[in-house]
């Protein structure tokens, strides 16, 4: 068993040129940047609130993985579906989730997305096609097959995206879902965020393959590995897969290679890794810094604009936090509501 990261595992670190930039207008590029920064700042705030004891339970942050959530969701339509994981705040924000209702849910307030019944691991917004974060690793696969089947039966051109981690690809539902989606050519994008760790276990120890995308071969569907910290590479690969799905040509397995900079959960003592590894990713391979440097090089992002964007997001988050803090706790008896639709 290795303790450090091998060269192969860390290949996501190799900084590839962001080579699709010419295909996008400045508005799109800046929207991607803004979304990534929003997720980063939201996650940072969530971490602070948790440390301050203002969030019950436990939370899992996606700091360092913003390129994947933003890149994929940026090519989706409002009526497309996503399903996500315990590490799902970024996906919900990228699909258009409301920051106020998210912070309120994290803090257990009745104005939260789930009226305080879900918390960090169970945020959904069905009006935005967000079929929910899921507390069970691999819990989303079978459900996304159903969403894909439903799209096919209703004869629309929507697509359904299942976000999951490297760890989930070792569970049975991954394999059942890829097979079923493949035989029916369902309009599904399976997006693996390979962040090098499943809880406290290294991916290289737990997975039989280096590239999770290689598992697509067993189901005769395309499997694509990209640098998950290159938001445009992610967007480009996701766009191809989504087009393919909308054309009725079936599912794709997309692997975004990235790195989980925070512990599995906030408060994780992280005995399984050297903090030097984390610092190295932070300094050399941050999806936001990498994208910002390209934007600056192309003169699309100036310091003024960067500050303005940051200030705007800070103001939104401040407002969201105020909203949550001023919101009432649910009444205890509300625990008995929302179980059955009728009876």
């Amino acid at each position: 068993m290795r303790t450090g990261a091998s060269e192969q595992e860390m290949k996501g670190k190799k900084t590839k040129p962001i080579n699709h930039i010419k295909a996008y207008d400045s508005e799109t590029l800046l929207a991607l940047y803004q979304k990534m920064v929003t997720i980063r700042k939201f996650e940072t705030l969530a971490g602070e609130l948790f440390a301050a004891g203002k969030i019950p339970g436990f939370i899992h942050l996606s700091i360092g993985q913003e390129g994947s959530s933003t890149g994929v969701c940026s090519i989706l339509r409002p009526d497309d579906y996503i399903i996500t994981t315990h590490r799902g705040h970024g996906h919900v924000i990228a699909k258009g989730g409301d920051l106020k209702r998210m912070v309120a849910e994290l803090m257990g307030r009745r104005t939260g997305y789930c009226k305080g019944k879900g918390g960090s691991m169970h945020i959904a917004d069905f009006s935005l096609g967000i079929l929910g974060a899921n507390g069970v690793v691999a819990g989303g696969f079978p459900i996304i097959v159903g969403a894909g089947l439903s799209i096919k039966l209703r004869k629309t051109d929507q697509v359904a995206v299942c976000f999951f981690g490297d760890g989930a690809s070792n569970r049975g539902p991954f394999h059942e879902a890829l097979n079923m989606a493949a035989i029916w050519k369902l309009p599904i994008l399976f997006v693996c965020e390979n962040n090098c760790y499943a809880s406290t276990t290294r991916t290289s120890y737990a997975c039989s393959v280096i590239d999770i995308a290689a598992r697509a071969k067993g189901y005769d569907i395309p499997g694509v590995s990209v640098d998950g910290n290159d938001v445009l590479a992610v967007r480009h690969a996701a766009a191809e897969a989504v087009d393919r799905a909308r054309r009725g040509e079936g599912p794709t397995l997309l692997e975004n290679k990235t790195y989980r900079r925070r512990g599995h959960f906030e408060g994780d003592p992280q005995r399984y890794r050297d903090q030097k590894e984390v610092v190295e990713w932070e300094q050399k391979n941050d999806p936001i810094l990498r994208f910002a440097s390209i934007l600056k090089e192309k003169k699309l992002l100036t310091q003024d604009l960067e500050d303005k964007i940051a200030a705007g997001i800070d103001a939104d988050l401040k407002e969201a936090l105020q909203f949550a803090e001023q919101s009432e706790w649910p009444k205890p008896e509300e625990a008995l509501e929302d179980l059955f639709f009728n009876f």
């Binding site: 079978p142 894909g148 059942e176 079923m180």
Partner: peptide, 28 residues
């Protein structure tokens, strides 16, 4: 036709696909 659907032997995804369809406008 088309509304009685054969599946692989794949109970996880049989139930899951029913659930996913139920969440997205169908009544399986």
């Amino acid at each position: 036709p088309g509304r009685i659907i054969d599946t692989p032997i794949s109970e996880t995804c049989i139930v899951g696909s029913g659930l996913g369809a139920a969440l997205t406008g169908m009544r399986p």
